[in-house]
Write a protein that binds this DNA or RNA. Structure first.
Lengths: 139, 139
DNA sequence: TATTGTTATACTCTATAACTATA
DNA sequence: TATAGTTATAGAGTATAACAATA
């Protein structure tokens, strides 16, 4: 019977998470953002203009957590909040021009960090990993 | 370009971790322990008698974190600390008889929780997942 | 002097509750 | 009444610093 913590799936998942987070945070740090910020930027760069709440829900975080995250990004000039004219309770959040440039640089840095993390396994295993995790997480 | 957070590997790993942790914690709760406790019990059940520091190092946690964890397990009658006769700075930590029974029950409950978590993918994908994560974590 | 266990403390992350303004 | 954003607060989790006992 094994007693090695490394055989416990939860241990492996947790430490893989921590290691990748450290790599991406390090890669993004020169841009003034971290992995969590990058997640928000991805949402903002992609779709329709979104309110704070909508972005928070896409990211799976609480709306109160979103506030501090946006405070920082706004202070850095990466995003702006503007009241939604059609519902003045809402803030529309948008990338600034500087925010777009930051995001483009962040995409490259992030992709590189993920690749470095996955270098220990082949490209096939990396794809399979992503597919398997999607199946385990999505339901 | 995708803007779905679910495409970010870090997001997938983190949420897989959280989901599995919730499942195992729920499965172990009737035994009065959680997944973190189970990790310690595995180490104690397996090898040579170990000091608090040695167990903590196996688990990758700080020795100060170990104290509270063992306080709880000792309070529940699952482990005992006894001073090491050969180095009285050390506490040898051992499972009690009740602790052994708890551990055996926990092993079954834990295995079942992992299986339930992995049910969404085939056994082949589950093995491959474990192998890939080991390769990504071990270095 | 260095190490083990302990305690006190601080820090990070995140959520809940309560408030304001809008709807 | 209900919702979006905000603020204050609290809780979990974990680490760092300092201390006592022992080596």
């Amino acid at each position: 019977m094994s007693t090695d913590p490394h055989d416990v799936l939860n241990y492996l998942l947790k430490h893989a998470t921590m290691r990748l987070a450290a790599l991406t945070d390090t890669a993004l740090a020169p841009l003034g953002i971290d992995g969590k910020d990058f997640g928000a930027l991805r949402v903002l760069a992609g779709g329709e203009p979104a309110s704070q709440l909508q972005v928070a829900q896409r990211l799976g975080i609480d709306r109160t957590t979103m506030v501090a995250l946006l405070d920082e990004l706004e202070r850095k000039g990466i995003v702006v909040r503007r009241p939604d004219p059609e519902d003045r309770r809402r803030n529309i959040v948008a990338l600034t021009e500087q925010g777009r440039r930051t995001f483009e640089a962040a995409r490259a840095a992030h992709a590189e960090a993920e690749s470095a993390f996955l270098a220990a396994v082949g490209p096939g295993a990396a794809d399979e990993l992503r597919r398997t995790l999607r199946a385990l997480v999505s339901p």
